[in-house]
């Protein structure tokens, strides 16, 4: 129990303000950071996965193993508390139990928020995901089942209220117009995101043809599409 409490620390207690402070040209060692000794315990990883999921316009890969670990942790803690309570704990133990319960509430909230963030994206881009196998591999099995049924009921409703009443050749729900716009909403990969480089990444090619050097600790506001590969490889983090 003690390890977990020590490890989770205050790193996500300010979970809502996840914009970095504006410092365009950070110099070495001007502020302490954890770039070189990254935390690898499950809760820190969950914080990271949650941040990336919330900041990225795209659907990221589901962290199945990590979620499993966290669920296991919550379950074990709950059982332990159950046992301790039955055994008639002392005053001091009660206080400790309280702290552990609070920790569980917080980790639980984080996990719920992670799941809810994904669910929101899944629902918004259902039709796109269901027709793009590459994205489907990023989903858990339960998520896939969820959005398959969701697409069905969503379209059923639209068919009954709208397109089912239109002339036959106007009933499509997945038309692509001649100018390239599609009826199917897709994640906007050109959306601007804040990134912080965890290492020197070398120059990236900007849409206008120029190139930008991304240095370690550099903070940039940049189109997601430009840095997508760096994010997936974990060389920069979204913030």
């Amino acid at each position: 129990m003690a390890d977990w409490n020590a490890a989770s620390g205050p790193s996500w207690s300010n979970g809502q303000s996840h914009l970095p402070s504006p410092s365009p040209e950070p110099t070495e060692d001007t502020f302490p950071d954890d770039l070189d000794n990254e935390r690898t315990d499950p809760i820190s990883q969950l914080v990271k996965a949650w941040t990336i999921e919330r900041c990225s316009p795209d659907i990221m890969a589901f962290e199945g193993e990590l979620v499993g670990k966290i669920m296991g942790y919550l379950d074990a803690q709950a059982k332990l508390i159950g046992v301790l309570k039955v055994d008639g704990a002392s005053e001091e133990d009660h206080e400790k139990i309280g702290l552990v319960q609070m920790e569980m509430d917080r980790v639980g909230w984080l996990l719920r928020s992670y799941i809810a963030t994904r669910q929101e994206k899944l629902m918004r881009y259902t039709s796109y995901i269901n027709s793009t196998p590459a994205i489907q591999t990023r989903l858990s099995v339960a998520e896939q089942t969820l959005i398959e049924s969701y697409q069905q009921i969503f379209e059923e409703s639209l068919i009954r209220d709208v397109v089912g009443n239109l002339p036959e050749e106007l009933q499509a729900l997945d038309e692509v117009l001649p100018d390239g716009r599609s009826m199917v909403s897709q994640p906007d990969l050109d959306k601007a995101v804040f990134i912080r480089a965890k290492q020197d990444c070398g120059p990236v090619l900007m849409p206008d043809g120029s190139s930008l050097e991304i240095k370690k600790r550099g903070i940039h506001l940049i189109s997601y599409r430009v840095v997508e590969q760096l994010v997936l490889r974990g060389e920069v983090e979204l913030a």
Partner: peptide, 19 residues
């Protein structure tokens, strides 16, 4: 979908504000 997690975590609970 909720049943996937329900033994440990109820995802129906609010996520508006962290506890």
């Amino acid at each position: 979908y909720r049943a996937e997690f329900i033994d440990v975590l109820d995802i129906a609970a609010s996520v508006d504000e962290p506890p």
